[in-house]
């Protein structure tokens, strides 16, 4: 079964590419904190490539299953007239090379595939000169045999990419402490909500909100804010060691909430006894990053994976009601089905 390929919309392709890729400057203007290797820091928001967009096929319930993924290759300025490039990847048999089409007379070559949502993929480009990684996309994967691939994920992906299990445990404990859902009534509400699986639509998947938030962070640090990955990896390691020193008898997942309350307050003050300042000198700054990410995870659109099944929006919607029981945060009114009930907006 060949991968469905959509006709190339050249104007839309330019809309996706020009701001990010077209330039004369070779400066590494976007290599924040030195995080992007091999010249990728010269492109603005290189994480947008390949470009993943939602797809609508007329049925709101079925549309979430597929995404439009546009692969873009920027040919060298001195490329020959007959220059050709194709892509192969785990979205198709690996022996299958899918050709990219030149967009008008530009240097952009592209193809748009319909791929399943919630998945992670690897790919490489092939030109006459052999295979190469995507020169724009910062995400790469190295296999056990040492082979490197470019990689990406589609909307509502849940497979862990960035963090190991022990790191996710620490993140879960820290982020739960930041979020406004750790009261008893919030917990009961969200547990009740978690049992109400409404359909198989990926945006409606309901699981524990803390798990969703950690999943959001896992994806954010793989892509948009990859430059903060060093801070996360380093600080999670420091925190893991620190809490184990403070309580050698329990795993972090089983430690009392007070342990993390104390740690949080110490991070706010910037003075954390036992913190390895030689490895990361500003725990308060890491907390700033974590606070911004955590709130964004919990309250952004469920397609990003953090606000699982729109549970955080539902929490506000249920908490704030008028005397007649009518919600005072009717988020569904503006949002597309099947999450919301807008009769106009498709998402």
């Amino acid at each position: 079964m060949p991968v469905p390929t959509l006709p190339l919309d050249v104007e839309h392709l330019f809309d996706l590419c020009t701001k990010h890729l077209a330039r004369d400057s070779e400066d590494l203007r976007h290599n924040y904190l030195g995080a992007l290797p091999e010249g990728r820091g010269r492109y603005s928001e290189g994480w947008r490539f390949p470009h993943v967009e939602p797809h609508f096929n007329g049925d709101p319930m079925a549309s979430g299953a597929l995404n439009r993924v546009t692969f873009v290759y920027l040919a060298p300025r001195d490329a020959a007239d007959g220059f050709k490039v194709s892509v192969r990847g785990t979205f198709a048999p690996l022996y299958e090379f899918i050709p990219l089409q030149r967009a008008g007379d530009s240097r952009f070559f592209a193809t748009t595939l319909l791929l399943p949502s919630g998945q992670c993929f690897r790919y490489r480009y092939a030109t006459g000169g052999g295979e190469e990684l995507d020169a724009v996309n910062p995400q790469t994967t190295t296999e056990d045999n040492g082979a490197r691939w470019s990689s990406f994920f589609t909307l509502a992906a849940f497979e862990a990419i960035t963090f190991e299990r022990w790191e996710r445990v620490i993140l879960d404990r820290l982020t739960r402490h930041i979020l406004p859902f750790n009261t008893e009534d919030a917990r009961i509400f969200l547990e009740r909500l978690g049992g109400q699986q409404r359909s198989n639509h990926p945006y409606l998947a309901r699981f524990d909100i803390g798990v969703g938030v950690v999943n959001f962070l896992d994806k954010l640090l793989a892509r948009e804010e990859r430059h903060q990955l060093f801070a996360y990896k380093t600080c999670l390691s420091i925190i893991d060691q620190l809490v184990r020193q403070r309580n050698p008898y329990l795993e972090p997942r089983d430690m009392n909430e007070d342990m993390f309350v104390l740690l949080y307050d110490q991070m706010v003050s910037g003075n954390v006894p036992g913190w390895d300042y030689g490895r990361y000198d500003n725990p308060k700054y890491f907390l700033e990053i974590l606070r911004r990410h955590t709130i964004t995870a919990a309250f952004s659109h469920p397609k990003y994976g953090g606000n699982a099944g729109a549970a955080a929006w539902d929490y506000l919607s249920a908490r704030y009601r008028d005397g007649d029981g009518k919600t005072l945060f009717d988020w569904r009114r503006a949002i597309e089905p099947p999450l919301g009930n807008s009769t106009e907006y498709r998402g």
Binding site: H30, Y32, H55, G58, E224, S300, H301, E336, G347
Partner: peptide
């Protein structure tokens, strides 16, 4: 949506991340 036809999606979204996106750093 209209620009993209009867089954089109808009390039604009009701999505708070579109209004203020991820962190970038002045270099």
């Amino acid at each position: 949506q209209e620009d993209n036809g009867p089954q089109g999606l808009s390039d604009f979204k009701r999505d708070e991340v579109f209004s203020a996106g991820p962190e970038k750093i002045i270099t």
